[in-house]
Computed example of a mutant assay.
Amino acid sequence: MTTSCKVSICVPTYNRPELLVECLDSCLAQTHANIEILIGDDSSDTRTQQLIAARYAHDARIRYVKNGPSLGQARNVASLFARATGDKIALIHDDDYFTSDGIETLLALWHRHPQLEVAFADQYEVDAHGNFDATTSAAVNAAFHRNTAAQGLQRQPGRTGLVQMFPNNGWMANADLVKRISYRDDVGTCCDYVFGAELCLAASQVYYLHRYVSYYRKTDVSVSGRTRGSACSASLTAFEFVSRLTLDASLEPARRLALRRLAPNVVSLYAKNDAPLAALRVAFVHLYAYAYGLDARLYYHLSLIARACIPMKWRGLPPSATRFP
């Protein structure tokens, strides 16, 4: 089954042709040959279009579309899922890339578990130049609950998505499930997390493999970095999404774990954007996120809240400085 199974590798891209080459070359070098590579180009110029024409035009596995006008992150990814013709779908962003056996490794899990719907594994963390540190990579994966003890079919598939164990790319899933869930255009830069959570909540079988199958590149121009301090922060959207979810009682501990990670970020965000009452409310409703006062971040955040209570004119700030209504 694994050799005959067609895998659609979806690659959204935006103004990064120099990094896209490494991504596409890693896809074309996969040990599993039955693939198609779908590219959705949201770029504001024609550099990527020219690159594809010059370097990949004669490779039938490449299926390129230049979006006009640009679709935005969520709709671009959703359009790639809709175009996919494979039995399985894998996602890799333009600045990331697969190990040479990444697709084969993930696909082999279906041979062992025919009812499997979603599979993922570890990601190397690399810098802008592709250099990786094994110790840092291991620590990052461990921080997202990816470790030896967690390997296997997940007892609670939904928990896997809620606690951010599921990665933003480098995963594989049944195409029909991916198309049904798809990416939402109403959650901004949080669309990766929301998709992962909803995908795992909808799946009956999710497998985590404690093995590296992809490389995640950290750059200075990441979307999360550009919006981290603003009202459109992915942390705030994720916090609101998790808080409002209707969940089975068995998943309430997972919700609590997810909010424990997110709540302090939201408190800081509200305080820095002159919404002290909202910050105080989140901090005390989710006091467990601060180990009930044993975490030093609580007192730092309380100092930010206190400062936000001082009228802006006394801090030398114009009224328009606030980013929250």
Score class of each variant (00 low, 15 high):
Ala202Tyr: 03
Ala149Asp: 14
Met172Lys: 03
Ala238Ile: 00
Gln154Phe: 03
Tyr208Glu: 12
Phe166Tyr: 13
Gly170Ser: 04
Val163Thr: 07
Ala238Phe: 01
Tyr212Thr: 09
Leu201Asp: 01
Asp220Tyr: 01
Thr189Arg: 03
Leu236Pro: 08
Thr227Leu: 05
Ala231Glu: 09
Ala238Asn: 14
Leu177Tyr: 02
Asn169Gln: 13
Ser233His: 07
Val206Asp: 10
Asp192Arg: 01
Phe166Val: 07
Ser230Thr: 14
Ser230Pro: 06
Phe239Gly: 02
Phe239Ile: 05
Thr237Lys: 03
Tyr183Leu: 05
Asp192Trp: 01
Pro167Leu: 06
Val213His: 11
Arg211Thr: 15
Leu162Tyr: 06
Arg180Ser: 15
Leu153Ala: 11
Gly152Phe: 04
Ser204Thr: 12
Gly152Asp: 02
Arg226Asp: 04
Thr160Tyr: 02
Gln205Phe: 10
Tyr215Met: 07
Ala197Val: 15
Ala238Leu: 00
Val221Gly: 09
Arg217Ile: 01
Thr219Val: 10
Leu201Glu: 00
Asn174Ser: 11
Gly158Asp: 00
Ala173Cys: 13
Thr219Gly: 15
Leu209Val: 14
Gly170Val: 06
Val221Gln: 13
Gly188Phe: 01
Glu198Leu: 07
Asn147Met: 02
Leu153Gly: 08
Asn168Thr: 09
Pro157Glu: 00
Val163Trp: 00
Gly161Met: 07
Gly161Cys: 08
Ala173Gly: 12
Val221His: 10
Arg228Ile: 14
His210Asn: 15
Glu198Gln: 12
Phe239Asp: 04
Asp186Pro: 12
Tyr207Cys: 15
Arg184Phe: 01
Val194Met: 02
Cys200Gly: 06
Asp185Ala: 13
Ala175Ile: 02
Ser224Asn: 13
Asn169Met: 06
Ala202Thr: 12
Gly152Gln: 01
Asp176Cys: 11
Val187Asp: 06
Gly196Tyr: 04
Thr148Arg: 08
Leu236Ala: 06
Cys190Asn: 14
Val213Leu: 10
Ala203Asp: 03
Ala197Gln: 07
Val206Phe: 02
Gly158Gln: 00
Ala203Asn: 11
Ile181Leu: 02
Cys232Leu: 02
Arg226Ala: 14
Leu201Val: 11
Val213Arg: 13
Ala203Phe: 05
Ala173Met: 04
Cys200Asp: 03
Gln154Tyr: 03
Gln164Tyr: 05
Asp186Arg: 00
